[in-house]
């Protein structure tokens, strides 16, 4: 009886989700058909490789930004913890400025102002740097949360048992920090992927840009926007589902 009502509940949940997804799709179909009579992705077939390349570039640039912002975020975390007041102040000011800046503005400022000031016109490089800088305060917070989640009593216990500093980090602290770090890190990865769409502004051939280019040739704007949207979701939704799975799996 209990298992019956349980599976019934599960069935209800599944049906609800299917209905919810269909509602959104129905709305999109309505929107699309209001704008075009012969809806078809066929005009994008010739651009398949270009778009695939765009997806590849989106993921590549996001991975680089993830790694870069993790490193910079960790440095910011260390500087924030530093006993030197100037560093604390610098991180505070920097964080406030980044929090207050739209990513679009930061990319433009970095690629068109800061880059040229250093005699570099490599916009792609500075675009990625902008993404890295933009994400670094968020990464700093992730590190801060992860390290502070190890309780004072755990340090006392490590003291009591006589672990060496290396043993503390290697066996106790880092394994816990990694578990705590993973879910927010993956959430940030999703933020980066979405943010990377703005790099189209610098003509970096990522997903947005490649579809934009295809659209300007085949004029299939309706299908193009829907394709673009769908492809982003195809990357980000599995990622967020995987994040939830990891979160459950690794929680302490």
């Amino acid at each position: 009886m209990v298992s019956n009502s349980l599976s019934l509940n599960k069935l209800k949940t599944i049906i609800s989700y299917i209905l919810a997804i269909m509602t959104i799709i129905a709305f999109m179909v309505f929107v699309a058909l209001r704008q075009t009579d012969d809806f078809s992705f066929a005009p994008f077939a010739p651009y398949r490789n270009v778009i695939l390349n765009g997806i590849k570039n989106t993921i590549l640039v996001s991975l680089i930004s993830l790694l870069g912002s993790m490193i910079l975020g960790f440095v910011l975390y260390l500087l924030q913890k530093s006993k030197i007041k100037y560093f604390n102040a610098l991180i505070d000011v920097f964080t406030e400025i980044i929090y207050g800046t739209p990513l679009l503005v930061l990319i433009i400022v970095t690629a068109f102002l800061i880059g040229p000031a250093f005699n570099s016109y490599n916009r792609n490089l500075f675009g990625v740097l902008a993404l890295i800088v933009y994400m670094s305060p968020y990464m700093k917070n992730v590190f801060k949360a992860a390290f502070s989640s190890i309780s004072h009593d755990q340090y006392l216990a490590m003291d009591l048992f006589g672990f060496t500093p290396f043993q503390r980090y290697f066996y106790i602290i880092i394994p816990q920090v990694i578990r705590i770090l993973m879910p927010p890190l993956m959430n940030n990865f999703s933020l980066i992927i979405k943010g990377s769409a703005l790099l189209n502004l610098l003509s970096y051939p990522e997903l947005f840009f490649t579809i934009d280019v295809a659209q300007s040739r085949n004029f299939a704007y309706v299908e193009g926007y829907i394709l673009m949207w769908g492809l982003y979701l195809l990357i980000t939704i599995p990622l967020s589902q995987f994040t939830k799975y990891i979160e459950r799996k690794l929680s302490l």
Partner: peptide, 26 residues
């Protein structure tokens, strides 16, 4: 030996590993 208010086991290690790690390393 010290027993804390809250168990204070290392949360990422199994009950047994909480003990064997200490014995092996220290």
């Amino acid at each position: 030996g010290f027993v804390f208010q809250q168990h204070n086991l290392f949360p990422h290690l199994t009950l047994k590993r909480n003990i064997t790690l200490i014995l092996e390393k220290t």
